[in-house]
Design a binder for these strands. Sequence first.
RNA 1: GGAGAGAUGUCAGAGUGGUCGAAUGAGCACGCCUGGAAAGUGUGUAUACCCCUAAAGGGUAUCGAGGGUUCGAAUCCCUCUCUCUCCGCCA
Length: 423
Amino acid sequence: MLQVNFIRENREKVLTGLAKRNKDFTAQIDRIISADDQRKRVQKDLDDVLAESNALAREIGQLFKSGKAAEAETLKARTSDLKEKAKEFEAQLSAVEKELREQLYTVPNVPSEPVVFGKGAEDNVEVFHWGNRPSFSFEPLPHWELTDRYRLIDFELGVKITGAGFPVYSDKGARLQRGLINFFLDEARNAGYTEYMVPHMVNEDSGYGTGQLPDKEGQMYHAQIDNFYLIPTAEVPLTNLYRDVILKEDQLPIKMTGYTPCFRREAGSYGKDVRGLNRLHQFDKVEIVQLAHPSQSYEILETMVEHVKTLLQKLNLEFRILRLCGGDMGFTSALTFDFEVYSAAQQKWLEVSSTSNFETYQANRLKCRFKGQDGKTQLVHTLNGSALALPRIVAALLENNQDEKGIQLPEVLHRYCGFDRIG
RNA sequence: GGAGAGAUGUCAGAGUGGUCGAAUGAGCACGCCUGGAAAGUGUGUAUACCCCUAAAGGGUAUCGAGGGUUCGAAUCCCUCUCUCUCCGCCA
């Protein structure tokens, strides 16, 4: 969430920035400022009362020590009034703090300067394009037919075991998954990211830390007996490794990567876009995360974008990069680049990575800070990106590389998979 | 799952009702000492919020978390979480 002081000091800037999201936040912002004013007033009142009681208590202690019990008793009488007042102010304080917090939760991150105003996906800006579209002498098959024909993925079997959106990969389908994961992890490690293997379930605090809670509660699977959530992305456990941590300035940037399965309820999505691998409840992804010095975060975002680019180039998939407009950008992001690969048989673009700078929006909730040379602590910037999510990569690989007899894998995957062809 | 012990600052570790944000030691930072270093020595070493502000200064909260008793809680009581030991179960 945004920092109240930042909002106070930059009200106009915040409002014009937020306007790019195609929504007016004036009312919320002003409510936040007035709630904060009230919070300060009540805090002051409470502190004053507590200071008085503390002084009184100290005095009573002294009197008892020096044997003046009677005087102590008269002072005691005065404390009950203060106690009552303190209780009242405490109640007021927690009420106004709750109000403030709830208001803050409703305000998304302020889009950074390059983000354009926009209503939705149609206003995103293509900033990069690479690769060529394959041409076929036959009608290319969509991946769900290829996975069936070559027995790579069994969607029906997944339904039996769990439900729709939980595919079962087998034989070369399974090995392709494992090969891709290893390829992505190796590339990340070579780019300087430290590899982690993290829990796939997280507690409530972690959910709040990265902003999945409270607003996206319905999108996560919830193990209610233990109050754990299945992670929707490795971003959650990875970023939360640094929750409540104060780093030294020279530790930055911190670069982490990890492979995890990702679990998403995808409540409310249906229709033709969910066919095959296009939208799943469980999928595999390698994530890259960085904690950065605020002065470097945008440079670092560029390097992350470059990293994802090289992955797609090595896989030889035609792709484009979109700079998301205000209306299409995620709630917590300040700047997001989406990567889309072209799916030759479906004849459409599939999103395979989303790489973002969250500035201090996540760090504020995480309480992830660093101490600078000047001794002051300030919030880090957090960034993350998919590098990469597997299902749609697999869809594009299968569709774009098919021939009449099977599927030819890109060279880079041969040693990772242990085979160069399917079929 | 059962029984017991415990959770204090960067770390180790004292503190069992008052002057405790917290002894002592280590670490770390800066200074002195030194040709340089070690040793020695001096000073400093949490976070958040608020008031005041040029700076300084002051107030409040925080000793796993939350609640309670008390004029006053690190210290007493209750609940929860976690750690360790033993037993049970087990990949």
